[in-house]
Amino acid sequence: MNNDKSLTIKTLSPKDAEQYIALRLDALKLNPEAFLTTYEETIQDKNLLDTWKTRLTPTPSAFTMGAFIGDSLVAVATLIRESHVKLRHKASLVGVYSTPAQRGKGIAKKLISAMIEKARELDGLEQINLTVASENMAARQLYLSLGFQVFGTEKNALKHNGVYSDEDYMALAL
C-alpha cells in the first residue's frame, strides 16, 4: 500500500486483522442496529486478533474485501457461500460497513461491485442474499442500485436494548 489518498479495493488477509478489528469495533459502537453481533460480545473474545486472522483468511467459500484510502481501511464487506449441497448456488453478503466520513462518496458501491464481480467467478454461484435494517434507507438504496431486490421483510428481526428492528431480505441474481 502507498500513503497517497487513492482508493484501493482488495481481498483482505490475516495481515489486515488489526485494522479490520478497529473498524468493526467502531461499527458495532456507532451502528449497533446494523449487526447481529454486539460490541460487548465481540470484546469478550480473549483471542480476538487470532479469531479475525482466521476469519480473514480467504477460502473458496468465504472472503472479506476492504476499501482503503491510502493505507486506511474505510469500508468492508464479507461474502459467505452456503455449505449445504442444495444451497451452494447461494451466498450471503454480510458485515458491510463504511466509516461515517466516507459515506455518500460511492466507496461502498465500488466495494460491493468488486465483490459481486469476484462472486461471479465462483463456479455454480447464482445468487447473493443479504438482510438490511428496513429503516436504513441509504443502505437499501445502495443495494437496490446494484440490482438487489427485496423479497421479504421480517418484523422484529433484531432486538437490542429493548428496541426492535425490522429487516428486509434482498437478493441479487448473478
Rank of each mutant, 00 (worst) to 15 (best):
A17T: 08
L23Y: 00
L23I: 03
L23N: 00
R24L: 04
K29G: 12
L30I: 10
N31Q: 10
N31G: 05
P32A: 08
E33T: 08
F35I: 06
T38C: 08
Y39M: 03
E40N: 12
E41L: 06
T42M: 15
T42V: 13
Q44Y: 07
D45V: 12
N47F: 10
L48I: 13
L48H: 03
D50P: 09
T51C: 08
K53H: 10
L56T: 03
T59R: 06
T59I: 07
T64W: 01
F68L: 12
L73Q: 01
V74M: 01
V76Q: 00
L79G: 01
L79A: 02
I80Y: 07
V85S: 14
H89D: 07
V96D: 00
T99L: 11
P100Y: 10
P100K: 15
Q102T: 09
Q102P: 07
L111D: 01
I112F: 04
I112C: 04
I116P: 02
I116T: 07
E117C: 06
E117L: 08
D123K: 13
L125T: 06
E126P: 07
E126W: 09
Q127N: 12
Q127S: 09
I128P: 05
T131S: 12
M137R: 13
A138H: 13
L142K: 04
Y143T: 02
S145W: 09
S145R: 13
G147E: 13
G147H: 10
Q149D: 09
Q149N: 12
V150H: 08
F151W: 14
G152M: 11
G152C: 11
E154T: 14
K155L: 11
A157W: 06
K159F: 11
K159S: 10
K159P: 05
N161Q: 15
